[in-house]
């Protein structure tokens, strides 16, 4: 098990970058209205994912698979299959990381550590394609209308020290198909989603 103790300077940067005022954000481009409506209708979503990490410290890419599940205004559950079995649960107050093989659980309380809280909430917003939450932090650019393709670029230099760019691809049904996170160091991670199961709200 890795004990997560990030350096304070890094956390301070995260706190600063994540507490930028909402006024810095612009209105969502009109092209994104269908996506927004689709997301608003979604009550629950689950999908399989394949994550590929291309990090300089690794000779080969690090591939893991698992399941993502979220409920609107509820929890995001990120479960990785064995051998790297783990489960990350993020809600509004905390992130809980469970390692079944070790029988251990780590809980990060966002009220006690707002910097880390913002990191996890950003991860959650990306996975849920929650553009309203992401827009204050990132500038959104529509690369392609159909199927929809977006690029998110950090609005502040502090954010860009951690994330250089986020690229999101959607399928024709406006389901998130892939996310690519580019880091300033050149490292990047790609997560491809498939087998979506969407439960929409009935009106």
């Amino acid at each position: 098990m890795i004990v997560i103790v990030p350096s304070h300077s890094r956390l301070c940067a995260l706190i600063v970058l994540c507490s930028l005022p909402a006024s810095a954000a612009e209105a969502l481009p009109r092209e994104l209205n269908p996506l927004r409506e689709s997301l608003q209708k979604t009550r629950r979503m689950s999908a399989r994912f394949k994550q590929t990490r291309h990090w300089a410290v690794l000779r080969d890419s690090l591939v893991t698979q698992g399941t993502i599940r979220y409920e609107k205004r509820g929890q995001l559950v990120w479960r990785m299959d064995p051998p790297a079995e783990s489960e990350l649960i993020v809600d509004d107050q905390r992130a809980t990381i469970h390692y079944p093989a070790l029988g251990t659980t780590q809980t990060l309380d966002f009220s006690a550590e707002p910097g880390l809280g913002k990191v996890f909430q950003t991860i959650r917003a990306v996975m849920e394609a929650d553009l309203d939450s992401l827009q204050p932090l990132f500038a959104l650019r529509v690369d392609r209308k159909a199927p929809l393709s977006l690029t998110l670029t950090p609005r502040s230099p502090e954010v860009s020290r951690t994330v250089k760019r986020i690229h999101m691809e959607f399928d024709k049904s406006l389901h998130l198909a892939s996310v690519r996170l580019d880091e300033p160091s050149g490292d990047w991670t790609e997560i491809a989603f498939h087998d979506h199961v969407i439960e929409t709200a009935t009106r």
């Binding site: 098990m1 890795i2 997560i4 103790v5 990030p6 350096s7 890094r10 995260l14 994550q51 990490r53 990090w55 410290v57 690794l58 690090l62 893991t64 990120w78 990785m80 051998p83 790297a84 079995e85 783990s86 990350l88 992130a95 990381i97 990191v119 996890f120 991860i123 996975m127 951690t162 994330v163 996170l181 880091e183 490292d187 991670t189």
Partner: peptide
Amino acid sequence: KSMASPQAFAMKRE
């Protein structure tokens, strides 16, 4: 295993 976790991109250095 830890590096595969979603939060790893923020904790990589540690």
